[in-house]
Design a binder for these strands. Structure first.
Lengths: 142, 142
DNA sequence: ACCGATCCCCCCACTTATCCCCACTTCCAC
DNA sequence: GTGGAAGTGGGGATAAGTGGGGGGATCGGT
């Protein structure tokens, strides 16, 4: 269960420390890939595999499905935590998410998101202002 | 599990280095053949055998199925990694995929695709900013 | 049948990138 | 205040990617 928000630094080699609380659930391996709204998503290996099976099961004859499959798998990276509990974020994923030195690591219950700090700030500021509106919309879901 | 995208070079002899991460799954042998959309597909031997059975089982009376069968089987080559982890891409397969010196090697979960760099670029450039759309579709599968 | 040429495979060498380990600093807990 | 764990940073060893050269088998020609 991933909860909470943390500010960590990427070093010169593109390494990012994962909060100690999150490391247990990622000990068996993890997959980093593109997320929604230009962030990165980190999945525990087991969660990723069920996801990957569904993507692989999509039709071969549908061009859209082929395209989709290529993006999903080509930009994903399966990794493991190093001995200091870090992951390596490749150059292409850093570019996609506009990650330079600082990064925001957010627990999203079943997975983790990694954000450019300004983007995260802008997004949450918007939510706080319109917060009541969003809350009203989503209250129905509970 | 094949994940990630890698840029490698073919040398003068038509040899192509397979990313080190992929080699384990190909140690028992592999098959290179023509893929859909003018790329090449590389399958581990075991995966190839199940694929070959399914393709063989396609209807004989369906013209599309016959054509597909020809594409897949006619130029297929069963190979093994050499001692440096490379495969040899025959002249006819290179021509089909427009491979000269540079090549993009893409993990597709259960198999590998090999692309001409410009073709790959053209295919994925369109998706870059609707990458969020892709990610949303991915999220729906969770 | 023998010789020669060609093709293919294996081995070697160099450059570059990746991984692993170690050390320092900071923050929190006791 | 002290001890320990977490975050941060750098350096060295090792493997990966790339290119070229040599030896052996095969095929064709004489």
């Amino acid at each position: 269960m991933f909860l909470g928000r943390f500010s960590h630094n990427l070093d010169a080699k593109g390494r990012l420390a994962i909060p100690a609380k999150f490391r247990g659930a990622l000990a068996d391996g993890l997959v980093v890939t593109r997320g929604i709204d230009r962030c990165l998503s980190v999945y525990p290996l087991a969660a990723w595999q069920t996801l990957a099976e569904r993507v692989s099961a999509l039709s071969i004859s549908d061009p859209d499905a082929r395209q989709f499959r290529r993006i999903v798998f080509a930009e994903a990276a399966d990794e493991a935590l190093d001995s200091q509990g870090r992951i390596v974020v490749g150059a292409e994923l850093r570019r996609y998410a506009a990650l330079d030195r600082e990064a925001v690591v957010v627990g999203m219950n079943t997975y983790i998101e990694i954000w450019n700090p300004e983007r995260w700030e802008r997004l949450t500021a918007t939510v706080e202002d319109e917060g009541t509106g969003i809350a009203q919309r989503l209250a129905d879901l509970i």
